[in-house]
Simulated scan of single mutants.
Amino acid sequence: MSVRTPDPDPDWTPGPENIQPPNQNQGWLSDVELADIRRRLPILYIEAVPVRVDGLGQVVELGVLLRARPTGEMTRTLVSGRVLYGETLRDALFRHLEKDLGPMAFPQLPASPVPFSVAEYFPLPGITAFTDERQHAVSLAYVVPVTGTCDPRQDALELTWMTPLEAASEAVSAEMEGGRGSLLRMALASVGQLR
């Protein structure tokens, strides 16, 4: 089952001869098209660290997803995904939080679309702290409080809630893919929880 996000058809415009949008499956990028685009252009992503806060707004838990890679290796990661053409950052953030955490997570999106960090992923290690063997990607990273029940969906196997101290550990960082352990520590620092 594919978990890729559909892309809009840029050639479709409403009109007398085009009352209905074309078949929605035509809006998906094929694997070949996506691979070609990834070789030519950086892709814009959002990443989110879901958190639970106490009555004073202090972060008490952070959520980290567990996923199985195609190789069978288990890794930890954050909520993430591409920003679609014509989609606002707020809409992309909400869509990916719902996709990964379920519709009952009830995220409280930030009032401002300014991220706590911008992470730049490269296919070759050593350029930055972040790697993605598929592509050059730029990711806007957010800390997002959630108030509801999180039920991981799509390719996430589980969501593990951790205290800030647990999330900052070297053990958790070692389990995270692509350098996201560093991004998780940056998230902790942005909310005053890195000791």
Score class of each variant (00 low, 15 high):
residue 1 M to Y: 11
residue 2 S to K: 12
residue 5 T to E: 14
residue 5 T to W: 11
residue 5 T to A: 14
residue 7 D to G: 01
residue 8 P to L: 04
residue 9 D to G: 00
residue 11 D to T: 08
residue 11 D to N: 13
residue 11 D to G: 06
residue 13 T to I: 08
residue 14 P to I: 09
residue 15 G to D: 05
residue 15 G to M: 03
residue 16 P to V: 03
residue 18 N to R: 15
residue 18 N to M: 09
residue 19 I to D: 13
residue 21 P to T: 06
residue 22 P to F: 02
residue 23 N to L: 15
residue 24 Q to M: 12
residue 25 N to C: 08
residue 26 Q to T: 06
residue 29 L to Q: 01
residue 29 L to I: 00
residue 29 L to C: 01
residue 30 S to K: 00
residue 33 E to N: 03
residue 33 E to Q: 15
residue 33 E to L: 05
residue 35 A to Y: 00
residue 37 I to F: 00
residue 40 R to W: 00
residue 40 R to E: 00
residue 41 L to Y: 06
residue 44 L to K: 11
residue 46 I to F: 06
residue 47 E to K: 15
residue 48 A to L: 01
residue 49 V to D: 04
residue 50 P to T: 06
residue 50 P to M: 02
residue 52 R to D: 08
residue 52 R to M: 10
residue 53 V to W: 06
residue 53 V to S: 09
residue 58 Q to P: 04
residue 59 V to F: 04
residue 59 V to S: 05
residue 59 V to C: 07
residue 60 V to S: 11
residue 62 L to H: 02
residue 62 L to M: 12
residue 65 L to G: 01
residue 66 L to N: 09
residue 67 R to H: 11
residue 68 A to N: 09
residue 68 A to D: 10
residue 68 A to F: 06
residue 71 T to K: 05
residue 71 T to S: 15
residue 73 E to T: 07
residue 73 E to F: 03
residue 75 T to I: 15
residue 75 T to L: 10
residue 75 T to H: 12
residue 76 R to N: 04
residue 77 T to C: 06
residue 78 L to G: 04
residue 78 L to Q: 01
residue 80 S to H: 14
residue 80 S to L: 11
residue 81 G to P: 01
residue 84 L to V: 11
residue 84 L to R: 15
residue 88 T to P: 00
residue 88 T to F: 00
residue 90 R to G: 04
residue 93 L to H: 04
residue 95 R to D: 09
residue 95 R to C: 05
residue 95 R to P: 03
residue 97 L to V: 07
residue 102 G to W: 03
residue 102 G to C: 12
residue 102 G to T: 12
residue 103 P to T: 14
residue 105 A to L: 11
residue 105 A to G: 08
residue 110 P to C: 02
residue 110 P to R: 08
residue 111 A to Q: 13
residue 112 S to A: 07
residue 113 P to E: 13
residue 114 V to G: 01
residue 114 V to Q: 09
residue 115 P to T: 02
residue 115 P to Y: 04
residue 116 F to A: 05
residue 116 F to N: 04
residue 117 S to A: 15
residue 118 V to H: 08
residue 118 V to C: 08
residue 118 V to I: 14
residue 120 E to Y: 09
residue 120 E to H: 13
residue 120 E to K: 13
residue 127 I to M: 03
residue 129 A to D: 15
residue 131 T to M: 05
residue 132 D to V: 06
residue 132 D to Y: 07
residue 135 Q to R: 14
residue 136 H to A: 08
residue 137 A to K: 13
residue 138 V to F: 07
residue 140 L to N: 07
residue 142 Y to G: 03
residue 143 V to G: 02
residue 144 V to K: 04
residue 145 P to V: 08
residue 146 V to G: 08
residue 147 T to F: 11
residue 148 G to M: 15
residue 150 C to H: 10
residue 151 D to A: 13
residue 154 Q to C: 10
residue 155 D to F: 05
residue 155 D to K: 07
residue 156 A to H: 05
residue 157 L to R: 12
residue 159 L to R: 07
residue 160 T to K: 12
residue 160 T to W: 05
residue 160 T to R: 13
residue 163 T to I: 02
residue 164 P to R: 03
residue 165 L to W: 12
residue 166 E to C: 00
residue 166 E to K: 05
residue 166 E to Q: 14
residue 168 A to Y: 01
residue 173 S to Y: 00
residue 173 S to K: 04
residue 174 A to G: 02
residue 175 E to Y: 02
residue 177 E to M: 08
residue 177 E to S: 11
residue 178 G to H: 04
residue 181 G to I: 07
residue 182 S to G: 10
residue 185 R to S: 08
residue 187 A to Q: 05
residue 188 L to K: 10
residue 188 L to G: 03
residue 192 G to L: 07
